[in-house]
Design a protein around this nucleic acid. Sequence first.
DNA 1: TCTCCCGACGTTAGCGCTAACATTCAGCGT
DNA 2: ACGCTGAATGTTAGCGCTAACGTCGGGAGA
Lengths: 341, 341
Amino acid sequence: MSVGSEISRPPVMEDVAKLAGVSHQTVSRVLNAHPNVSPQTRERVEKAIAELGYRRNTAARSLVTRRSQTIGVLGSDMSHYGPANTLLGVEQAARDKGYFVSMASLSEVTPAAIKDALEYFMMQSVDGIVVIVPHETMFESLSTISMAVPLVAVGFGVDERLSVAAVNQRMGASLAVQHLVDLGHAAIAHVSGPPDWIDAAARIDGWQRTLAQAGLADSVLIRGDWSAESGYRAGLELADAGSVTALFAANDQMALGALRAFSEAGLRVPQDISVVGYDDQPEAAYFVPPLTTVNQGFKELGARCMQMLLFDMANGHSGASSVVNPKLVVRSTTAPPSVGQ
Amino acid sequence: MSVGSEISRPPVMEDVAKLAGVSHQTVSRVLNAHPNVSPQTRERVEKAIAELGYRRNTAARSLVTRRSQTIGVLGSDMSHYGPANTLLGVEQAARDKGYFVSMASLSEVTPAAIKDALEYFMMQSVDGIVVIVPHETMFESLSTISMAVPLVAVGFGVDERLSVAAVNQRMGASLAVQHLVDLGHAAIAHVSGPPDWIDAAARIDGWQRTLAQAGLADSVLIRGDWSAESGYRAGLELADAGSVTALFAANDQMALGALRAFSEAGLRVPQDISVVGYDDQPEAAYFVPPLTTVNQGFKELGARCMQMLLFDMANGHSGASSVVNPKLVVRSTTAPPSVGQ
DNA sequence: TCTCCCGACGTTAGCGCTAACATTCAGCGT
DNA sequence: ACGCTGAATGTTAGCGCTAACGTCGGGAGA
């Protein structure tokens, strides 16, 4: 019923054309939704395509159009909540728009590794690149390498050389710290991420500014590395010093570590010390006690990213930026400082 | 110094050939490491390639070789620890071997969505597919759809129709439960994942078998959905009933939720109740108290996966399977049941 | 009635590469 | 000296598609 000559080779455009009684070019026109095809012809061709199970050959198409319909996504720590969800957002938006997404992840963020990955994308002749590595090294590398294709970076500070989609980290940090200030805290420590991470730097900055605006003195800053373990160590340190009534952690995992440290040290949260996290990963609501934290719309960020990339791909480099605003989520790790303190 | 005719078009093989004073085919031979090229010629060609910054056009190459050098990775809940890390393992192994990796993630695991995603990979004419969706629906869909390219599934049970790389879930569950039995527990509950998830089913099975082997009666089984929230509800239920001295949770997040529930209910862990998780995500060591759990080598799993896929791509479908063994990680949430119980 | 135009197709010429087949030219045995 | 072999190259013919042009009718305007 279906096939005339039972050859194993997958059907090509010519086969469809023959079956529909038209030329291969008409098939191409149908596929590309050209206007000048009569409805009857279009229908015949579509039927033939369905009957043969024809699929257009992407390589041949790419060869002549010079576009691969692929975008490259470069990430680093994809096993973490934020980047993983941003990736998901990008992927969904890309697929919606008919793009394929190729991914590469950096096991270490060094200029060489970055160059390699970018080179890998160029080999694939991607039509655009999304970079989800908010790292100072990445920023420097990106400034050095002039890209042949549009690129949008997630989470960088605004810079006219780069198209950027970011969460307003400073605002997020501000939200967190101001919440503590409003509660009456005057000594608010911060466990930061590695300072060469752009997000970490922005959160440190937001923390300091908010403190200053509230007329409070600088407080203790402990450098963490995003891991629960570093949060734990920071928590121990803070519990030992006992100089502080609140802690703002640069992510939920470090907050988790701190929570454990406080628990071990016999400090009650929030009665003895308040804690605010950052990210609002789903587990945060189930920490002991449930964590007050800052929610970032990662999936939306990914979608925006893709939107900007498509714009740049159509109109050339824009250097535009799109920033999404985080929201504070108050749960049970924050309370006014105890009077006895 | 570098280019003769300053045209904007990217260099093609012919340009390299001209510069090196050879034919384009010789350039191709150098690029493909053919044996019959003299060392001097090879060197001249390589120099020309470097000088022009030549990069071979993947589309043209794919068109003629009929291989895209791309493998598709299909995932579902990539924002979770296990799948995300498996993906990373696959990605690294693939890139090592010179393959590109294209990813698609399922926002919902339905036959239609699966078919779509697989279709999407076929459009891209991937050379192979890795499926990281250990879901019953996926298994059924895979049995229905006969794939045109090699496919390896992560985490399925062994089945000769499918090439599979998996963690031995039954053993993992056994490890966890046996540990509790050895401690002296006789009433060991289980919070499972959704039972249409293959991993969840295997862990339930492992839990039951180990109980039976130890001569213990069936205990209470609560169905969760992997989320901390469901673990929390289960914990509340268990605390309320008070019929059990230990809990085996099918993942760390549910264990986290349970930990919080117990804490709220005034149950001390591990004195009043022991808890074992599953996955050993990095945070597990920083729960309050640190969680005893089962470690699965996700990255290794990803690498094995890729290895099998390459094998199948070279030799046709193998239906082989490769299983990695999990390890128990004992921390502080497990102890002998209190005598007063 | 005769243009002229334009919609609906068909035909042709590559895109940049690799596989398969030619070609050339040493070196070797007889 | 003569082929003969085989390594090192060159030449040719597509892979399957789209862009650019060619063709061919049938209405609208003169």
